[in-house]
Structures are given as C-alpha cells and as structure tokens.
Amino acid sequence: MSGGRTSRRGYATCRPAPGGFTTLHACGAGRRTGSCHVRWHVATNPRSPFTRRPYLQRTTGERHLALDGAVFTETLADGTVTAHTLDDETEVRRVVDEEFGIVVPEGVRLLG
C-alpha cells in the first residue's frame, strides 16, 4: 500500500520496503499534496500500484464495492463482507460494467 509523507522539505509518495519505505516520487517544499504533479505520478508512473491493475470503489447507502485487481469485495451496511477472486478477464470486465457502470473499450486489458 502506498502512502504519503509531508515535511518542511515537501511531499513524498512512498511504499513499504524492507527496513522502512521507498520513495516513489517527491515534490519540493511549498507544493500542495493534491497538486496535479502528484496526481499525474500516481496515474501514470510505471512504479505506481494504480497503473498495474484495476482499483475501483463505489459506495451506496446499502453497500460498498471494491475491485482490486481480480478481487471483488462487497461490504453491506450491516458489516457483512463477501470477497472472492474473479476467474478471468471476461468476469472482471462484466463486474466493472455491471457493478461500477464503466464500459472498458475493446483492446484494453485489465489483468496482467
């Protein structure tokens, strides 16, 4: 899981590593943590965990849905959690379409 750290010197996007954290990207002092620069890194850098797999979330009054790679998790308002691994690219596309309302263009691969 990636995280961010702020200091007087700026902002860094980090990920866990043996013995601490590895810095993936850093901004100089005076930049806002929500700057376009950081968002661009998260969305486009090959080392960002968000460019290697689908990561979607959707919340309604009755449930919270999450898709992380091929793992689909549904959490109901009463706290019941159901998680399962989807079988293949076709099933992931179906869940993305039916549960999240996103139609993925042909030719775009969601898994590996």
Rank of each mutant, 00 (worst) to 15 (best):
T60M: 13
R5K: 13
D97Y: 02
D88T: 10
A83E: 03
G61T: 13
T73R: 13
G19Q: 08
V104E: 07
T80S: 09
G19L: 09
S48M: 04
G61F: 12
R15W: 10
S35A: 08
C27N: 12
G30N: 06
G112D: 15
V42A: 07
H84R: 15
D87C: 05
T59V: 14
T51K: 04
P46M: 04
R39K: 13
V71A: 02
L65D: 12
G3M: 02
P46C: 02
G61C: 09
R63L: 09
S2F: 13
F21R: 14
V92I: 09
E89G: 03
C14K: 12
G10N: 11
G4F: 10
P49E: 02
I102C: 06
C27Q: 15
T85C: 02
T73S: 06
S7P: 08
E89T: 01
E89S: 05
C14T: 15
C14M: 10
V104T: 09
E106F: 05
T90D: 06
T75R: 09
D97N: 00
G34M: 01
C27V: 14
T23L: 13
P105H: 05
F21G: 00
V95A: 03
A26K: 09
T33L: 05
L56K: 07
C36I: 09
N45V: 05
A43T: 10
R31L: 09
E62Y: 12
D97P: 03
A77L: 14
T80P: 03
E98S: 14
H37M: 10
S2G: 06
C27G: 12
E91W: 00
E89Q: 04
G101T: 05
F21M: 04
R5Q: 08
C14W: 02
R5N: 12
P54F: 09
M1S: 15
F72G: 00
F50R: 08
V95P: 02
V38H: 03
E98I: 05
R5Y: 03
T22P: 01
G19C: 13
F21K: 07
G4E: 06
R39D: 02
Y11I: 15
L110N: 04
